[in-house]
Design a binder for these strands. Structure first.
Lengths: 283, 283
DNA sequence: GGATCTATGAAACCTTTGTTTCAGAAATTG
DNA sequence: CAATTTCTGAAACAAAGGTTTCATAGATCC
């Protein structure tokens, strides 16, 4: 899945300087760009100097940029010319068009799910399906997605809870978790500072944790022994898109339902019935 | 599918000199190699001299090799002829696979945004950009999306409010709306029964309303004189996907930002700064 | 608040890439 | 087979790419 360059970046991401991170970010988001562009261009795209670029590659353990490019090319040849959907380039200041929006979403979805390994997904689904209870956490901007995911999962199995956004109440909430539970964390960049705390806690309680995140943070999550569902979320202007994350959520819920089989269906029908009753009942 | 380079080569292949043909052949066989390699390398791979390479590109009508590379890159970035992505059929009971998930999301996104008219989108964006205040409503399952949309919009303009899910408090909330406000409703099938009430209210108060919905309900919304943003959300198993809806939300927010121009950017930066401060500040 | 350290881009400096020139090889012609 | 034309790569030259140095701005530490 990840290129060696990506792995090295994720390993050392935190130690990189801010401008190095800007460039590293770009490289993670658009891995194919390395093949097509010169180091000067990469630097320009991500708004840093050539000098910074040179420093980054060296500090990642390559002897020079040529070394990087050779490795990237070799890897491409090994994995075969995967037909990548290109992320469109944007000239700054130009308005975003509708087709471009479509292409961006498409590129992110395609990368994400072509890269996702079935066994990783199954593993995550298994954990969620077999857990005693399931806890879903999403801080800040990701809170909306977390709520949706909770609903999606609650439709196919009981005992799915949202961890409140208010850190003050965590002790109480965590107190009710057990080693048979599963924890799903949604956290995109900028990686909220509370996440490591939560992950560390999960690790000590033997909670199974699943982290839905972006390539920048994937490394950190992996280091905490969590199952990582990696989502590509970048756009050519400097915003991110949550679409892919939601899609990942739906896929996970779907996979869990599959695993639970008949049980999930029974529950879904039950819920549908109740919903209908409410809809008819209240005037 | 043919690149312009390939076309030019095929046109003139017979007139090329033997060593030029060797190189041309190579380029036809491995069209992606142009992006990854330098002219020197291309020459070496196909066993001709750099001089020959330079001559070939010139004789094909390019001013120099850089010209060739730029065109190739541009072609890679441009979306090819729009192809209809088929929605996969599924035999009931069969497990959903990962590629299928991707294809479904893809199909829905593509349909949605190819069908969406630019003027409708602009119209909606205009309304949101110029409104005194913006109200976002999403009932039941759509509540999560509504929250996300509120955040997305709040990032680019002030005065974006969420209408509570609790119908009992609506009188108070609606009381504060004025005819210069905009109302965004997210409502997928099954079309919640409260929606017509809200829409009717909006109509009498001269509130501009925008409805993000699915094809099933689009008609109903249109009849209430609302701007309709239509999202394809179906899947081969009998569930729906909210991915498209979220994507529509991002697009709308993006369009609004575009319309507000500098004002939106100022606000975004302000928010980013504050967020950073909070992240740094609280321990 | 000064001293020290870190991060960063500008610019100087090599290196590689790409183009052009040119002389010789190969093919063609009479 | 000589004259001519065409083709070709080596080498000279020009341009862009990549690395290193250095001054400076900002952070951190007494």
């Amino acid at each position: 899945m990840g290129t060696r360059l990506a792995l090295r970046i994720q390993e050392r991401y935190d130690e990189l300087t801010p401008s190095e991170q800007k460039l590293a970010q770009f490289l993670l988001d658009r891995p194919d760009e390395i093949l097509a562009s010169s180091a000067t261009e990469l630097a320009r795209y991500s708004g840093v100097s050539k000098a910074t670029a040179a420093r980054l590659f060296r500090s990642l353990g390559y002897s020079d940029f040529n070394d990087v490019r050779l490795q990237a090319r070799e890897e491409r040849n090994r994995t075969g010319p995967v037909q990548q959907i290109p992320m469109p380039q944007v000239t700054t200041g130009k308005a975003m068009t509708l087709p471009m929006h479509l292409q961006v979403e498409n590129a992110n979805l395609t990368r994400t799910f072509e890269e996702l390994r079935t066994d990783v997904l199954n593993n995550a689904a298994e954990q969620v399906a077999n857990a005693g209870r399931v806890w879903v956490a999403g801080l800040g901007n990701e809170n909306g997605i977390a709520r949706i995911l909770r609903i999606l999962l609650a439709r196919v199995r009981p005992g799915v809870h949202l961890i409140s956004e208010n850190a003050a109440t965590w002790p109480e909430e965590f107190a009710s978790t057990g080693p048979n539970d599963a924890l799903i964390i949604i956290a995109l960049r900028p990686w909220p500072r509370q996440i490591p705390t939560i992950l560390a806690f999960a690790k000590t309680t033997r909670l199974k944790s699943i982290v839905i995140t972006d390539p920048t943070s994937a490394g950190k999550a992996q280091r905490q022994e969590a199952t990582v569902l990696n989502c590509h979320i970048s756009t050519p202007w400097n915003e991110i898109t949550q679409t892919t994350v939601l899609s990942m959520g739906q896929l996970l819920a779907s996979a869990v339902a599959n695993r639970l089989g008949r049980k999930a269906n029974v529950r879904r029908e039950l819920i549908a019935d109740i919903a209908e009753e409410i809809e008819d009942g209240d005037t």
